[in-house]
Structure formats: C-alpha cells, structure tokens
Design a protein around this nucleic acid. Sequence first.
DNA 1: CCACAAAAATGACGTGCCGTCAATTTCTGT
DNA 2: ACAGAAATTGACGGCACGTCATTTTTGTGG
Lengths: 205, 205
Amino acid sequence: MSDTAELEPIGKREKTKAANRAAILVAARRVFAQLGYEAATVRDIIRGTELASGTFYNYFRSKEEVFEALADDSARRFRPILRLARAHARGFEDYLHSAFIAYFRFIAEENEDEGRPIDERRPHVRSDTPEMITVYQEVRQSLEDAIAHGDAPDVDADYLAHACIGIAQELGPAMLRRSPPDIDNAAAFATGLILKGLEGAPRKK
Amino acid sequence: MSDTAELEPIGKREKTKAANRAAILVAARRVFAQLGYEAATVRDIIRGTELASGTFYNYFRSKEEVFEALADDSARRFRPILRLARAHARGFEDYLHSAFIAYFRFIAEENEDEGRPIDERRPHVRSDTPEMITVYQEVRQSLEDAIAHGDAPDVDADYLAHACIGIAQELGPAMLRRSPPDIDNAAAFATGLILKGLEGAPRKK
DNA sequence: CCACAAAAATGACGTGCCGTCAATTTCTGT
DNA sequence: ACAGAAATTGACGGCACGTCATTTTTGTGG
C-alpha cells in the first residue's frame, strides 16, 4: 500500500522543493510589500525563510524573476475567474460588467492587509509584462467572439482590448483609494463608458 | 556694457553648471534607451560625458533621480501642448480629440530614433509617478470645466480622468506597434469610445 | 594683476549586494 | 546499508554605489 498511497508522485524530495519555492514566494510577497521592489534585496527575502542565501538561486535566477513569478501567480489565479465570468454571462453587456467587477474585487483582495500605499506596492506591473499579456489575450478573445456573434459592433478588437485594460488598470487604484473601496461604482462606470460613452456612464451622486 | 550684457545672471560658473546637468541628462537618455533602466549604471551615464564619476552626485542623488528628471522633462514639455489643445479647441469633443492626437504624436516623437523595443524603453513610467500626476491634474481640470459648463454630462471627474489616461497609456504602445504609427485612428477610436461608447468607435476598415 | 576664499570636480576608497561554486548534507533506489 | 544523485550551504570574487579628502577652477577684493 505504501507505494501507492501517494497518488501524486511526491517523494520527500519533490515535497520540500515545492515547499521551499512556496516559502520563498511568501517571503518575497511580504518583503516587497514592506520595502518596495527597489529597496528589497534577495537577502531580505531569504532571511524570511529557513534557507541559505545560495539556495535562493536554485529556485529563481534573480530578484526580477521572483517578482515576475509573483505577478504570474496573480495572473494565473485571475484567468479562471475571468473565464467563469464569461461562461456565466448573459450577453455581452453582462460579461463586461462581470469582468470589471471581478477584476476590481481581485485587486481589492490582493491589496488588503499589506503594509504600504498601493501605489508603491506593484512597482513593475505593466501591460507588456508576460502575465498581463495573457490577460490581454483572454480579454481580446472574448471581445472578438462578441463581435463575431454580432453582440458588439465591428470595432478594432486590439484597440478595444487595450482600452478595457487601460481603464481597468487606472480605475483600479483610483477606486481602492476611496474608503470603502468603490468596486461597484467603478465597475458601473467602466461598463457604461465602454457601452455608451459618457452618456452611459453613471451620473454623479 | 559687459556687466549688463548678460541679462540672465549667468557667470561662467552657472553656465557650466547648467551645461553639465544638461550633458548628464542627454547621456542618460541615450544610455537608458540603449541598455534599459535596470542594466544602465551611473558610470555608463557619466562615461558619456567629460565628467568624473563623483561629479554625477553633485547633480543627482542616484540613477533613480536622473531617470525621474528625464520623465519630468517629458511631462514639462507635454503640459503646454495639452494646454494649447485646450485653448484652441472648439467645444469638448474637439478638445478630447486634439488631446489624444497631441499625446500620441508626442510619444511617437519621443520613441523614434531610439534603439530598442518600445516595451523596454520606458520601464518605470507609471501613472502614480510625480510627472504623471501633474498630467492627471491637467486632464481632470479640463474635464471638470467641461462638466461645469454643461459640455459634458455630470459624471465622476476623477474616474473619467483616470479612464482617459488609462486609454491613452494602453493605446499609445498599441498604435506605435503598427507601422506606420496609427496616430489618427487611435485618437479617433479613443475619442469615439469616450463620447459614445462602442457605438461611437470607428468601425473596422 | 595678484592673492585668497568659495565652489566645484576628481577618483580612490569603503560598503553592500549579487550570483557562483566547491564542499557538505540529505535523499533515493537497490 | 550503501553508493550515487540531488539539493543545500555560506564563503568568496566582482561590481556598482555613493562618499570624501584632495585638487582644480572660479569669483572677489585689494
């Protein structure tokens, strides 16, 4: 039995490998949040674990790489959420709204219980980063499908996807700055703006 | 005459100081463009001038600071352009369109004749950077005025300003990637989207 | 025109971080 | 239990940073 007990092929070796990688990521997330990306050093990160400095380099090539792994993690967790929104949506307008809600909730969760202003926390998240590119592709695919099905006008899907992402990225921090986080209004604003422009955006108050 | 000839109070001292600072900025712009922000070193920059390594620190405290000075320069050159667009605009719609055109032209000029892909060239330009905040304020003021004058619906000016900036920031690289740079279409797309939403955005082809 | 003080430039130096690597410990299969 | 593979360790060389005592340049008053 003992050899079949472990359904996943996990010996002690693989297990500590996964655990170490996870420990580094956890420590890195905390250190980046506390010190900011620039000030954080690889040694700061490794000090938050039980490992020695050299071991860091068995798992990541550099500070840059561990940061990107964190960002990739975020994207990997977000993509299924986006797909779910798409699967459940009744029509294009509903999809857009759900997607914005989902995104704003997601970053609200990611940013709570961290110790420094949002602005300094995600120093390198740009739209041309690998993890953001996959989100872009997801969004663009949805928009293209909507256009193909006649649910949306035949506009430039590349530009539209970028516009959606740009709105989301800028509205995100702006709505987090309000207390409590203004998730629903921001999502309504974004959706209204895209669907009908200024006339479709909610009036103030 | 000689003491009144120099209307600006510029002795040799002040002159070389200004020249040195300018030389460092020029060299820094080139080095950042060639190597990218991360790889560039203060010594790389100073090597592009006639100065010694220590002299750099008479003018800037760090690599970060010289980079920010470059970014501030960009913002300082862009703001009057934005104001001009506002002064010349006939109505709100015209202002929006001119502003997008101006922005896209500006970054197209900034990005030509530099030696590496756009994506890696402006590594730290985020919307929460000091120079971007002044642009945000400029945009927001214009939007608030338009709303006050009844030229635009009474929507949340903060969100609207962020949405405009987000669209501009994402559409910028996207339109630069096309050859030739797709300035006019991108501006039309952005303007149409904001004014009337998807219905107002240009149809493809 | 000179001498003297203030300002700026210089580059060698101390410090700290990075990433490597030979030695050591831990694990796996037989 | 043992041999070989895999992973960990921390000391080390190298590099970039930013400082500072020294030297050079500039401005000023006699």
